[in-house]
Design a protein around this nucleic acid. Structure first.
Lengths: 130, 130
DNA sequence: ATTTACGTTTACGTTAACGTAAACTTTGTG
DNA sequence: CACAAAGTTTACGTTAACGTAAACGTAAAT
């Protein structure tokens, strides 16, 4: 396992984003690729961070929120103060996520209803057995 | 039930948004309040639509996507062609929502892990029983 | 030697979703 | 009647998250 390395276009292709996007995430401080001369060279850690960013985006998080969540995984919190603060942050985030799940379930239920109505309408249009 | 009516500031207060936001949604064609002279007057249908918009936003949908979803509930689709198209749209949206639920569950699992690590670290800091 | 492919930096452009401010009307209220 | 509260329109400002283009370096392939 020689620590996998990736070029920017490799990652861009894998994740279906542009290289501009990946550079933008770096510009915003979300990733910190190495350099080989002038060229950026990405480690598997960078790759994971990009995956986390895109996951966050899929559920509507801003890049800043993504950064906040990713930072939780980092060993930047040494003293008890910071640990307690982090625990609070985690609780807040958990509540928000649970609310989101509820919202999604509600919307799914709505889709089910609409779908039923559609199917009924189609059935009636097909066989006017009156 | 005399069809409840609301002023713009009533709804703004209820939903915790500004009146500007509500007017903006109208500008974008998501709601169509009545007029009493020059003033806007909102029905309970408008109120429901606002609620749906805000729910959509909570799960990261754009206003356009919110509009699309809300339109599904409307009786605007008469022929079989449109009904089939709508069924397709519903399926797509359902898939996206299920993916979002998966993403949320993954993130919740991550939070659980981080929380455990925090608690462990705090425990060790409290009682160095070695 | 010159395309071709990939990389770089710098910088201006764009869209969405409002915020903010100005200038004005209408409607009670002391 | 003055004035405060809530409404209106019009319009410019702002932030996030990139898109797009220019101008350039480097290295492999023809």
């Amino acid at each position: 396992m020689g620590e996998a390395r990736y070029t920017i276009s490799e990652l861009a292709r894998e994740f279906g984003v542009t290289t501009r996007t990946i550079r933008f995430y770096e510009e915003k401080g979300l990733i910190h690729p190495l350099r080989q001369g002038q060229n950026r060279i990405y480690t598997s850690a960078d790759r994971v961070r990009i995956k986390l960013i895109l996951r966050g985006k899929r559920i509507g998080m801003s890049l800043q929120e993504c950064a906040d969540v990713i930072d939780m995984y980092d060993p930047d919190h040494n003293n008890a103060e910071q640990l307690h603060s982090l625990l609070g942050t985690i609780e807040e985030k958990r509540k928000a996520l649970l609310q989101q799940k509820q919202d999604i379930d509600d919307m799914l239920a709505g889709l089910d209803e609409v779908q039923s109505l559609c199917l009924d309408a189609l059935a009636r249009e097909q066989e006017p057995t009156s």
